[in-house]
């Protein structure tokens, strides 16, 4: 090998190492922090070698007072459950409303089609605060503030346009001939949807469900304003470790990892489709 080529190789390896470090190091450091006792966390300089402890995770789950590991936020398991309920409910509602809509937009021609599709897409442009201020006022009046159903409805702003656009793009990929053949065999529109379109777009459906769930799980600003202590999801829950008196660094580190864990697993399941999902089907 010529010296010049080996220099290129070394440069490539260094760049790969730098990219790896930049991507992974924050996770490693937070993992280490979550395993440290309060004394180790504030040590100067930061230590890489220490006696690991699971106390931060225990405080997260049990939330009891344990000497200096007092957790002021004992209901993190509850927040986790809230995240599952709200995200799951929002995805289900979006599917129920979104599947027939996506079918209509993918397979029928009707006068308002373009306008309706665009209206749903246009939510992507609105800053959340423009929705959340009036929602906050309406929810106070209707008793939807700090309820699961209120949050599931608000989360439709995240999942419904996404579900409709994603499913529409998947439905459109199914060849028209199959649908026509089913019609000749006597299938009604309902038969076409349930026996042809849905079975053939199962992968697309799975991707839409998983990505929709991820986006709901990531939501922070809607629940920040519309949820209360009983309905906080993990994203709002994690920020509660910062109080005026102190920041519970160790427990916050443990909480961030626990909050991110479902995302880490789910996103690896749908990695091929993530760009498509994030651009609402604009980039495949």
């Amino acid at each position: 090998m010529t010296p010049r080529r080996s220099l290129v190789h070394i440069g490539t390896a260094l760049a790969a190492a730098a990219l790896l470090f930049w991507t992974v190091f924050p996770f490693l450091w937070i993992l280490l922090t979550s395993l440290k006792s309060p004394g180790d966390i504030i040590s100067v300089p930061p230590t890489f070698i220490f006696t690991p402890t699971l106390d931060n995770y225990a405080a997260l789950v049990i939330g009891e007072q344990r000497g200096q590991y007092s957790s002021t936020r004992p209901d993190f398991p509850n927040y986790f459950l809230n995240s599952i309920i709200i995200s799951g409910g929002a995805v289900l509602l979006s599917l129920a409303a979104g599947i027939p809509s996506a079918y209509a937009l993918a397979r029928f021609d009707f006068p308002l089609k373009g306008a309706l599709a665009f209206t749903f897409m246009s939510f992507r442009f609105v800053p959340f605060i423009a929705f959340v201020i009036p929602l906050y006022l309406v929810y106070q009046q209707l008793g939807l503030y700090n309820t699961y159903s209120g949050l599931i409805l608000a989360y439709q702003l995240i999942t419904l346009p996404f579900t409709i656009w994603m499913l529409r793009s998947f439905f459109q990929e199914i060849p028209l001939e199959i649908q026509e053949a089913a019609k000749i065999d006597g299938c009604t529109w309902f038969g076409v949807l349930t026996r042809v379109i849905l079975p053939l777009s199962m992968p697309g459906l799975a991707v839409t469900i998983i990505l929709g769930f991820i986006f709901c799980w990531n939501a922070f600003n809607y629940p920040l304003m519309l949820a209360g202590r009983q309905t906080f999801p993990v994203t709002v829950g994690a920020i509660q470790f910062i109080s005026y008196e102190q920041v519970l660094w160790g427990q916050m580190a443990a909480a961030t990892l626990v909050s991110a864990l479902p995302q880490l697993i789910l996103s690896l399941m749908v990695q091929k489709y993530i760009v498509r999902g994030l651009t609402m089907g604009a980039v495949k």
Binding site: T23, W29, I30, N218, A238, L266, S267, L268, L278
Partner: peptide
């Protein structure tokens, strides 16, 4: 590398912020 790059992208932004707040 490609798969690992998804992780910062898909975790909640507020969680990302808290991680860096610690660091």
């Amino acid at each position: 590398l490609r798969a690992l790059m998804l992780l910062p992208l898909m975790i909640p932004p507020v969680i990302t912020a808290l991680m860096w707040k610690i660091m």
